[in-house]
Simulated scan of single mutants.
Amino acid sequence: MPLDRILRSLIAWQHADGAPTPARAISVEQARERYRENAIRPRPGDNGPHTAVAVVDEKIDTADGTSLRSRVYTPEADSGRVVTYLHGGGWVTGDLDTHDWVCRVLAASLGAVVVSADYRRAPEYPYPTPLLDAIAAARWTSQMSPGRDHVLIGDSAGAHLALGAALDARDTGGPRFAAQLLVYPPVDPSLRIASACAHAEGYLLSVDDMMWSYEQYVPDPRHRGDPAVDLLNADLRGLPPTVVATAEFDPLQGEGEQLVENLHAAGVPARHVPGPGLVHGFFLMQDIVPAAAATARRIIQELDDVLRSAVP
């Protein structure tokens, strides 16, 4: 279907004075500030059920002695679930604040305690540090919430880390996850599929921006073939039931769809929620793009169905 009209207007507005400056042409701090400005905005009339979610900041200790910031969201209606949430931002940008609203929505919608982890970011902390932090966050969440159905959720780079954490848990006897939700995950560091798609440029996320992100996260090309990085070629057997969400006008759409096929081939129950007319990043646009909100509701409903079907 055609690009959503609100997103079309947003993109046209961003291109009014020429194409936006690519990430590699600005400093890391400028990239982070630009991401924050786009993600954190006033939400007038925001009086949904997620406003009643209680929030407290916590610390997560890692294996190297570092304490990570985290934010724990507790809804009024508790369904006995807990989520480890890993934010997007190309492993470079994004933080607890940029994804605060989304975590509130998830907590209220799923009736789940949500632990949002502020993992260390590239380029100051390249691979594998962000992944190790994600693993530590998932273990901390599991230890703090015994008996709850534990769900891994991540968007974009956070989805990449979530899938890596699930692989680690499988291989090391780590936490047991009831399900995972991967929202427009990057899984192919070669960017072969993304480069060949019809929406490689001009739709908020470009292939060049993804290439820059990989360069920051995995500066040594020798590691881009590691199973925890090249997730499209990883052994996916034994992973928890998975929901994968994609966006039609996203360079990562094709590799997300291929990931679903690979999960099925590996015997993993997997569901795909497409995002017709949407772009990368729509999960953060639910308050301004009705089509994004509708797709987000479908995504959350699919995850809820997966969790309900797993209950004896």
Rank of each mutant, 00 (worst) to 15 (best):
M1T: 14
M1F: 07
P2L: 11
D4T: 13
L7S: 08
I11N: 00
Q14K: 07
A19C: 01
T21M: 09
T21C: 07
A25Y: 02
Q30Y: 02
A31Q: 06
R34Y: 05
R34K: 06
R36L: 13
N38M: 13
P42E: 14
R43W: 07
D46F: 08
P49R: 03
H50P: 08
A54W: 01
V56N: 06
T62E: 11
A63M: 10
S70T: 11
D78H: 04
S79P: 00
T93Q: 12
T93L: 12
G94M: 09
G94P: 14
L96H: 09
V105D: 04
S109Y: 00
V113L: 06
V114W: 01
A117T: 13
A117H: 02
D118L: 09
Y119N: 13
P123E: 06
P130T: 07
L132F: 04
L132V: 07
A134D: 13
I135V: 15
A136N: 14
S142Q: 14
Q143P: 01
M144Y: 01
S156K: 07
H160P: 09
A162D: 06
A162W: 07
A165H: 09
L167W: 01
D168L: 02
D168Y: 04
R170T: 07
F177R: 00
F177D: 00
L181K: 02
L191R: 10
I193D: 03
S195Q: 10
S195V: 00
A198W: 00
H199G: 00
S206D: 15
D209A: 10
D209Q: 08
M211H: 11
Y214P: 00
V229I: 15
L232V: 08
D235K: 09
G238D: 11
P241Q: 06
E255T: 08
V260T: 12
L263G: 07
H264F: 10
A265K: 14
A266C: 10
V268A: 09
R271Y: 04
H272C: 12
P274W: 04
P276V: 09
G277L: 04
F282R: 12
F283D: 03
Q286H: 14
I288E: 05
P290N: 13
P290L: 13
A294F: 01
T295N: 14
R297W: 06
I299D: 01
L303W: 02
D304Y: 00
L307R: 09
V311T: 15
